[in-house]
C-alpha cells in the first residue's frame, strides 16, 4: 500500500471513499441534534435539524484543467456542483453560497473576471446568490492557476438521502450520461477528437424542486453522478441502502458522440463524470409520472428509467446487456484512455 496520496484517491471510486472514511470520518467528534445527517453518513451534504426543518450544508472544491471547456467553465462548475449537492439532499431553497478563490501569482485578471461573470450567471439560473467569499494569492508555481472552493446553505422540510433505496424501486437518471467527463477528457489527453462533445454542467436545483414538489414521497433517494459517474454513485447508493441494482443497458441515455468517443478510448460511459444530472430512486408505481415530469423541464428532456432495485446481491451493480448480465465493478482509479 502506498503511503502517499495518489490521483486515484480523488477519482470518486473506492480508493477515495476509503481515504475519506479512514482519515476524516473515523474518530471525528460529531454532536448534532437528533434526526440530523452528519459526516459519518458521507452523503452529499450535512442536514442539521433546526426546529421542524433542516439546515443543509455542503462544501465543494473545484479544480479543472482547462478552466474553460465546451459547455462551461470552472465558475459554472463551482456554482452548479454546490447547488446540486444541496438539491440531492432535497434542499432546493438556497439561503446562500460562499466562494473562496485561491489564485496563482501572474494569473490573468481578465480570465478571473470571466470566471466570476460565469459564476454570477449560474447563480441567477440556480436562484441562489453568493453571499460571502475569500481571496488568497499564492506564488507562481505554488498552485496551478485557480482553485475555487464553495459552500452552500439551504433549508428544507424533508431530507432525501442517498441511502433510501428500497427493493422494487426504479432507478431514474435525469438525462444523458458521460457528457462532462468526455468533453474534458478529450481536451486533457489531447485526443484530437472533434465533434459535439460538450459538458452538461448546470445547476439542477429547479429541476429537482419540480419533481419533489409534484411527487415528493415517491422519491426515495437521490445522488448526483459526478466523479466516477453513474456506476460509482449507484454503488454508493446500493451499498448504503442494502439493495442490489440491475441496470438495463438499452435504456441508458448516452449521446452518440459520447458513446463513440468513449469506445475510441476504451472507457465505459457508466464511469464518466456528469455535472448536471441526478440519479433518483423512485417508488415503482410513480416512475412513469416522475419521468414525464422531468421531461417537461429543459434539463430533464432525456430523463429515463434505467434500472431496478433488488433484494439480492446487496451493494452490487449488475448490467443487463441484452445478451446477458454482468457485474459493474467499482471504479479503481481515474479512468484513463487505453489501447487494449
Amino acid at each position: 500500500m502506498s503511503d502517499r496520496i495518489l490521483l486515484k484517491h480523488g477519482a470518486g471510486g473506492r480508493a477515495m471513499r476509503a481515504l475519506i472514511e479512514q482519515t476524516f470520518v473515523q474518530g471525528a467528534p460529531g454532536e448534532l441534534p437528533p434526526g440530523s445527517v452528519g459526516l459519518d453518513a458521507m452523503d452529499d451534504g450535512a442536514a442539521v435539524r433546526l426546529g421542524d426543518r433542516w439546515l443543509v450544508v455542503t462544501a465543494d472544491s473545484h479544480v479543472v484543467s482547462p478552466l474553460f471547456f465546451p459547455g462551461g467553465d470552472i465558475g459554472r462548475l463551482a456554482v452548479s456542483g454546490t447547488v446540486n449537492d444541496l438539491a440531492m439532499m432535497g434542499a432546493t431553497e438556497v439561503v446562500g453560497l460562499t466562494c473562496a478563490v485561491i489564485v496563482e501569482e501572474g494569473f490573468s485578471r481578465d480570465t478571473l473576471e470571466r470566471v466570476v461573470q460565469s459564476m454570477r450567471a449560474a447563480s441567477r439560473e440556480a436562484r441562489a446568490s453568493i453571499v460571502t467569499g475569500d481571496t488568497k494569492v499564492m506564488g507562481r508555481g505554488e498552485i496551478d492557476g485557480l482553485v475555487i472552493s464553495t459552500a452552500g446553505v439551504a433549508l428544507t422540510d424533508r431530507v432525501v438521502r442517498d441511502a433510501g433505496l428500497h427493493p422494487g424501486d426504479r432507478i431514474v437518471v435525469t438525462g444523458t450520461i458521460g457528457d462532462h467527463g468526455m468533453a474534458v477528457m478529450s481536451l486533457r489527453h489531447d485526443l484530437g477528437l472533434e465533434g459535439d462533445l460538450a459538458s452538461d454542467v448546470a445547476p439542477i436545483g429547479q429541476l429537482v424542486a419540480l419533481v419533489l414538489g409534484r411527487h415528493g414521497d415517491a422519491v426515495h433517494a437521490m445522488k448526483d453522478p459526478t466523479r466516477g459517474g453513474v456506476a460509482s454513485a449507484l454503488h454508493e447508493m446500493a451499498g448504503k441502502s442494502g439493495v442490489g441494482v440491475v441496470l438495463d443497458e438499452a435504456s441508458l441515455p448516452v449521446r452518440d458522440e459520447v458513446r463513440a468517443a468513449a469506445e475510441l478510448v476504451g472507457i465505459d460511459p457508466l464511469y464518466i463524470a456528469n455535472e448536471g444530472k441526478a440519479i433518483l430512486g423512485v417508488r415503482a408505481d410513480a416512475v412513469d409520472a416522475v419521468v414525464a415530469t422531468l421531461r417537461e423541464h429543459p434539463l430533464g428532456r432525456r430523463a429515463a428509467a434505467i434500472g431496478t432495485c433488488v433484494v439480492e446481491r446487496q451493494g452490487t451493480l449488475v448490467l443487463d446487456t441484452g445478451f446477458g448480465r454482468r457485474l459493474v465493478a467499482e471504479l479503481e482509479g481515474e479512468p484513463l484512455p487505453r489501447i487494449c
Binding site: 440491475v246 433488488v310 446481491r313 443487463d320 445478451f323 446477458g324 454482468r326 457485474l327 459493474v328 465493478a329
Partner: peptide
C-alpha cells in the same frame, strides 16, 4: 465483471 456468476434474470 463477475466472471460467470449466476446473476439472475432469464439469460
Amino acid at each position: 465483471y463477475g466472471g460467470r456468476p449466476f446473476l439472475g434474470g432469464d439469460s
